[in-house]
């Protein structure tokens, strides 16, 4: 592993009107990392993801991916380089069978180049690749889950479908925006090994999460945001021991005692 970071974010700031959603956030992700981004509601986690992946324009700062300055590139070009993301609110194409949802990413230039779909023009070859990807991510082929309409799938499968949409691009870095939220305990339990499997396949992950317990099991480094500021960085123990992080989550000690 080389020491150059895969993704380097420097001093990114974004203001919505008078609200400073991000103020000077920096982070580095190395190849093979699973970086967790946590923080209370409204702390700017999703804004950070949006700024990195080009869905909003940041006011200041730079984003470097594979040593290329991708600051404020359009999202599709960033995705084309191999940096893609899932969405917090999943909106699959409900009327289509699940595997047809993957045709869109498989149609992109990146998927064609990467050879996942060899573009031989054979009828149905994209469908086959799509079903293979879904099977790999936990859709049971035998019970015809990939063929069922997306509208009939439970949340757990929809989250996987959203992740599969990213994997169809053969990405190098995937930013997962709250893949654990809304899942049952058992669904979450089956999601954790999946994330580890992805890392072993060489995909670097950034996970934005509210579910701290599951995140602590898989993330090797964490970043804590509060009011758009980075207030902590390190392993889960280091982060949780930090006074600022405790204050951000539970309030300051004086405040806590004032309620008691």
């Amino acid at each position: 592993m080389n020491n150059k970071p895969l993704l380097k974010v420097e001093n990114v700031s974004k203001a919505f009107g008078g609200v400073l959603a991000l103020s000077g956030v920096s982070l580095e992700v190395h190849h093979g990392d699973i970086l967790g981004i946590i923080g209370p509601n409204g702390s700017g986690k999703t804004t950070l993801v949006n700024a990195i992946t080009g869905f909003i324009r940041s006011d200041r700062g730079t984003v470097l991916f594979k040593d290329r300055n991708i600051t404020n590139w359009p999202p599709h070009k960033i995705a084309d380089l191999g940096l893609t993301r899932t969405f917090q609110v999943m909106r699959p194409y409900y009327s289509l069978p699940a595997f047809k949802n993957l045709i869109v990413p498989l149609f992109s230039g990146r998927a064609r180049r990467s050879g996942g779909w060899r573009g031989g023009g054979k009828l149905g070859s994209r469908d086959t690749v799509a079903i293979d990807i879904l099977e790999e991510i936990g859709f049971e082929r035998d019970s015809y889950v990939p063929y069922k309409p997306a509208s009939s799938l439970p949340t757990g499968y929809l989250k996987r479908l959203e992740l599969a949409r990213c994997l169809a691009l053969r990405p190098e870095l995937v930013i997962c925006d709250e893949v654990f939220s809304g899942l049952s305990m058992s669904e979450m339990a089956s999601m954790v090994p999946l994330m580890e499997k992805l890392r072993m396949e060489g995909i670097t992950l950034i996970m934005v999460e509210h579910r701290l317990r599951e995140l602590f099991r898989i993330a090797n480094r964490l970043i804590v945001l509060n009011f758009g500021l980075k207030i902590g960085e390190g392993t889960s123990e280091e982060v949780m021991d930090s006074k600022e992080v405790k204050e951000a989550y539970f309030g300051s000690e004086e405040e806590v005692f004032s309620y008691v």
Partner: peptide, 14 residues
Amino acid sequence: KDNDQAVKASAINI
């Protein structure tokens, strides 16, 4: 039509 954000994130220029 259904979800242009997801199409952008799929490396396709809408």
